[in-house]
Amino acid sequence: MREQIDIIRDILDKQLVDRDHTAMGRVDGIVLSIDDGAPRIDHFELGFVVLACRLHPRVEQWLRAIRTRWSVRKSARQIVPWSAVQDITQREIRLDVHAIETSAFDWEKWLRKNIVSKIPGSGEE
């Protein structure tokens, strides 16, 4: 039987977790590709810029300008291919990746290394 999924209701904005159930962002955007006239989900997009463009093109422009100056993340839009999706449950979408190795954790890693680990009592050995 063909499985049917309502992509706006059940996928967009849903929590993403990795293999070990570490939260790694949300589905900020969904990109379809069209093969032989039939659309299919190609990948998810993550990132503040993706969210901003959902609000207003102007907001997106501002954020891009800020990003080029300040961001520690390499690309504005982080891409998660559909092939990485392992499971879709009521609660979350599980991906077959290690969160810490993806760019969803660029900011987290940068903050850990440059700020949090410098403050005593952070749990850093």
């Binding site: 929590q15 993403l16 939260a23 790694m24 987290e108 949090v116 403050i119 749990g123 850093e124």
Partner: peptide, 23 residues
């Protein structure tokens, strides 16, 4: 903040495990 952007969160984690949440 953590839930809106889907970060890992929890007050039971040590700050190094959820840097964005703690910051």
């Amino acid at each position: 903040f953590a839930q809106t952007f889907g970060w890992n969160w929890g007050e039971d984690l040590e700050p190094i495990k959820d840097a964005r949440f703690s910051l």
